[in-house]
């Protein structure tokens, strides 16, 4: 294995009943790399992402996080999950907790930090995502979509993850809030936070990705640097996705 590989995915398969969600997916992520997964709806992007912290259990295949094989049944997956930041499409903030407590709960209950340590880390994470401190004691229902997603990013970030996984982080947002969330993800990626981002924002993918993975019907049909894919797409579907979106952009 290459020494700076953080995540290594080998031949992942997943079926829901008769429908194939993942059909032999393999890739690696290096430290500090930003990988973006694109593809049409139902191509297996979210399933793939959820397999990476075993929220969805793959039927076959192996995943290593660093030197630890997380698909090994003897592994305590809860210990692994705290090292993998996961940002959901629908935010999934805990409704009954304030912004601050949403970020602190994992630190206190899972990482067993003292309250004052957790508070400091939570405030750091919340200021990294640019959340105004007047919102710290609000409940999720009192926030805008963009603010909710930034809190969700802070909640994942505060755990000091080795990798951040974003599952369509802007899909549930009203258009006016998309940019503030993309801004945060962009900033984190530029600061060297290893990230895998599933998105339909092709313009954003092209701008931020070190490598883009194109998925279709549970397979990786193409992958490469954004400039390579844009200038010389090998697959007709890649061409369609990129050109359609890039034109819209212009």
């Amino acid at each position: 294995m290459i020494s700076d590989t953080i995540l290594n995915v080998v031949d992942l398969h997943k079926k829901y009943g008769d429908s194939i969600a993942l059909d032999g997916v393999s890739f690696r992520v290096r430290k500090g790399e930003t990988k973006v997964i694109i593809g049409p709806n139902g191509s297996g992007k979210t399933t793939l992402l959820k397999c990476l912290n075993l929220l969805v259990k793959p039927d076959k295949g192996r995943i290593w996080l660093g030197n630890i094989e997380i698909t090994d049944p003897r592994i305590n997956i809860n210990k692994i999950r705290r090292k993998i930041g996961f940002v959901f499409q629908d935010f999934n903030l805990f409704h009954h907790l304030t912004v601050l407590n949403n970020v602190m709960i994992g630190l206190v209950k899972v990482r067993k930090l003292k309250k004052h340590q957790a508070y400091k880390k939570a405030v750091d994470a919340l200021s990294t995502v640019g959340l105004d401190n007047t919102l710290y004691h609000k409940y999720p229902a009192q926030l805008s979509g963009g603010q909710k997603q930034r809190v969700a990013i802070a909640r994942a970030l505060a755990m000091d993850p080795v990798i951040m996984l974003y599952d369509e982080p802007t899909s549930s947002l009203d258009p006016q809030f998309v940019n503030e969330v993309l801004q945060v993800i962009r900033k984190l990626a530029k600061n060297g936070v290893t990230s895998i981002i599933v998105t339909h924002q092709i313009d954003f993918a092209l701008e931020i990705a070190d490598e883009i993975i194109v998925m279709h019907k549970g397979r990786i049909i193409e992958s490469g640097r954004p400039t390579e894919l844009l200038s010389n797409p090998q697959n007709i579907l890649t061409k369609k996705i990129l050109i359609r979106n890039f034109r819209t952009l212009r």
């Binding site: 809860n78 999934n92 994992g106 899972v110």
Partner: peptide, 15 residues
């Protein structure tokens, strides 16, 4: 309670 609440808890590493 939405499934996402439990999923988010698990994603944080809660048992």
């Amino acid at each position: 309670i939405e499934q996402g609440q439990a999923e988010a808890a698990r994603a944080l590493g809660m048992n």
